[in-house]
Simulated assay, not measured.
Amino acid sequence: MSLLLSRDLSFYQNRLRQLHLRLRDHLYRYMRMQNPAVLAQVSHDAGGDTQYAIDTHLETLLIDLCREWAREAPFVLIAEGIGEDGWYPLPEGTSVRDAEFLLIVDPIDGTRPLMYDKRSAWLLSAIAPNFGRETTLEHVLLAMQTELPTTRQYLAYHVWAIRGQGAHAEVHNMLTGEIHPTVLTPSRAETLEHGFATFVKPFPEGKRAIVELEAEFWAQALGESINPLVFEDQYASTGGQLFELMSGRDRLVADVRPWAFTRMGVSVMPLTCHPYDICTALIAHELGVQITDLHGEPLRAPLDIRTPVGWIGYANTSLRRRYEPLLLRLMWG
Rank of each mutant, 00 (worst) to 15 (best):
V183K: 15
I63W: 08
G310H: 00
L184H: 03
A156L: 02
L65C: 04
L148I: 10
S247L: 03
D117Q: 08
E297V: 03
L77P: 07
R67I: 01
L21M: 09
Y276R: 10
A169R: 05
D64C: 07
G296M: 10
T136F: 04
P107N: 04
H168V: 11
R71K: 14
A281W: 15
I291K: 07
E134V: 05
P270S: 08
L77D: 02
I108E: 01
Y154E: 15
W122N: 03
K118F: 12
H194M: 15
T151Y: 07
P298G: 10
Q290W: 06
N14A: 15
A53N: 14
R32D: 07
R320P: 00
G81N: 07
E193G: 03
A121G: 10
V140R: 11
L23E: 05
M331I: 06
Q220S: 05
M33A: 15
D117Y: 02
K207N: 12
P129I: 07
Y276G: 00
Y28W: 13
Q145R: 13
R32W: 00
D85K: 09
M331C: 09
L16E: 13
L299F: 02
L27T: 02
I291F: 13
R300Y: 11
L9Q: 10
P91G: 02
V42E: 13
I108N: 04
L319S: 03
E324R: 10
T135E: 05
I162A: 12
A46C: 12
G248W: 07
Q18Y: 07
P302C: 09
R306G: 05
M31F: 04
R263M: 01
G240N: 01
V253F: 02
T262K: 12
I54Y: 03
V200Q: 02
T150D: 01
T176L: 08
G86L: 11
F231T: 12
H274C: 03
T262V: 06
K118H: 13
D85A: 09
R208E: 14
L58W: 06
Q18T: 11
N35S: 12
V253E: 00
L326I: 05
P270L: 06
E147G: 01
R119N: 06
A40F: 02
R97D: 11
A209P: 07
G265E: 00
T191Y: 08
W259E: 01
H180K: 15
E100P: 01
I305G: 05
Q34A: 12
D250N: 11
H168I: 01
L175W: 14
R163A: 14
P275D: 10
Y12V: 09
F203T: 12
P325E: 07
E216S: 12
R257I: 00
E170G: 06
L61T: 05
L327Q: 06
Q165T: 12
